[in-house]
Structures are given as C-alpha cells and as structure tokens.
Amino acid sequence: MLQNPALIIIDVQNGMFESENPVYNGDHLISNLKTLIHKARIADVPIFYIQHNTPVGKPLEYKTKGWELHPGLSPMDTDTFVQKTTPDAFFNTCLEEKLKAKEIDHLILTGIQTEVCVDTTCRRAFSMGYTVTLVKDTHSTWDSELLTAQQIINHHNQVLRWFADTKNANEIEFQKK
C-alpha cells in the first residue's frame, strides 16, 4: 500500500489526441487512467492534473479546446490543477506548494509525453526527495525518426526504474485514508 500518495496526470489534454497525429495507444492510456482515477477517488487520494500551456497557435494553447483535459478524465472541483510551460511540472509552478499543503510524499506518475514531461518530472521529483511510482502502461508518446513509441516507452520504463518504482496500472493499490 502507498503512504500519502497523489495521482499525477501530466498533459493528458485534447491537443495530444488530434486525429491527424494522436498519441500512441491513446484509448488504452485513457482506459488505464480511468481505472487509476476511480481507485484514487475510492481511497480519497488527491489527484493532480498538470496542464501544459503553449504559445498562441500551438495545439496546447492556453484556454483553447486543445488545452482542455481529455473528456475521459472527468475531473472534479476537488482535484488540483497545475499550469506549466516547460517539461518540468515543478519548474515555476505551484506543484510543490500544493503537494506540501496536502502532505504528499509519494507521487504516482502518469501522462504524456514519456521522454519529455513524464521523464523530466520523474527525475525532478526523485531529486526533491519524493517517493515516485511510474505507471508503466499509463504514459505515452509518438514515434520518432529512430524509435517507435512503444520502444520509447519501454526504454523509459527501464531507465526511470533508477528514479521510481515501476508498476502497471493494475498493480497500483491505494490505501483508504
């Protein structure tokens, strides 16, 4: 069981699911996230939604349809929302302040983009002293010129095990507070 955890959902925004270039395995990602959100809500575990804000004209432009959270996530007013402009969810944001206010010491990381925002936030959280769990089947990306999205995900699941426990979504159990 996890002590003082929070579920962190990074950049699962509409712009990542655009029909011409959707994130890899997006339906599976949303399905796993729904399961984790449900488990977190039952156990009264805080949920943090991290939203990336990009410049005007980009897919995640602030306050546009692309910037909004994916509708499958069903956020509630009691959830915490953090805005960021870099891959690091802690850099120039209120994330650390909000985590400390809720006495969170264990971050359950999920989201998009595996090799950028998820990787950066995972390493930073570890360096800041948080216990981190990376949910192996609940982060995603796109194919690159050199690697498929699945290869990138697999690689990061291996590399980030130095900074986080790695588990599949069905292995995550939250203890009721």
Rank of each mutant, 00 (worst) to 15 (best):
163 F>E: 07
82 V>R: 05
47 I>P: 04
97 E>S: 12
166 T>C: 09
160 L>C: 10
148 T>E: 04
114 T>M: 01
110 T>V: 04
174 F>D: 04
173 E>C: 09
57 G>P: 03
51 Q>H: 06
166 T>M: 07
101 A>D: 07
167 K>H: 14
75 P>I: 07
85 T>F: 08
6 A>Y: 03
77 D>V: 12
100 K>G: 08
58 K>E: 14
118 V>W: 04
78 T>P: 11
133 T>E: 00
162 W>I: 10
117 C>G: 05
118 V>P: 03
91 F>T: 08
115 E>M: 11
96 E>S: 08
12 V>L: 00
148 T>N: 00
40 A>Y: 05
160 L>Q: 04
79 D>T: 09
74 S>F: 11
128 M>W: 13
129 G>F: 05
72 G>Y: 15
94 C>R: 11
177 K>Y: 12
116 V>K: 02
154 N>T: 15
161 R>G: 11
14 N>L: 11
129 G>A: 08
2 L>R: 09
85 T>H: 10
87 P>C: 10
22 P>K: 03
145 E>T: 12
11 D>T: 02
157 N>T: 11
87 P>R: 02
98 K>E: 13
142 W>P: 05
133 T>I: 00
11 D>Y: 01
134 L>A: 02
19 S>H: 15
95 L>G: 01
78 T>A: 15
90 F>Y: 06
163 F>H: 15
73 L>W: 03
88 D>C: 08
171 E>C: 10
25 N>A: 08
28 H>I: 12
139 H>L: 10
6 A>Q: 06
30 I>V: 12
61 E>D: 14
21 N>I: 08
156 H>K: 08
88 D>V: 07
161 R>C: 11
169 A>G: 13
107 L>A: 00
45 V>P: 02
52 H>R: 10
49 Y>L: 08
106 H>D: 05
80 T>E: 10
82 V>H: 04
163 F>Y: 12
2 L>M: 11
139 H>E: 05
63 K>A: 09
155 H>M: 15
21 N>D: 11
118 V>F: 01
176 K>R: 09
46 P>W: 02
166 T>V: 10
61 E>M: 10
72 G>R: 12
163 F>P: 05
110 T>C: 04
132 V>G: 00
111 G>M: 11
81 F>I: 14
92 N>A: 13
139 H>W: 01
153 I>V: 15
34 K>E: 07
67 W>R: 06
20 E>K: 14
118 V>R: 03
54 T>N: 11
63 K>P: 07
74 S>A: 15
161 R>L: 11
152 I>Y: 01
41 R>W: 06
61 E>S: 08
116 V>S: 07
53 N>E: 15
94 C>I: 14
119 D>V: 09
149 A>P: 10
48 F>Q: 03
70 H>W: 04
155 H>A: 14
99 L>Y: 01
149 A>N: 07
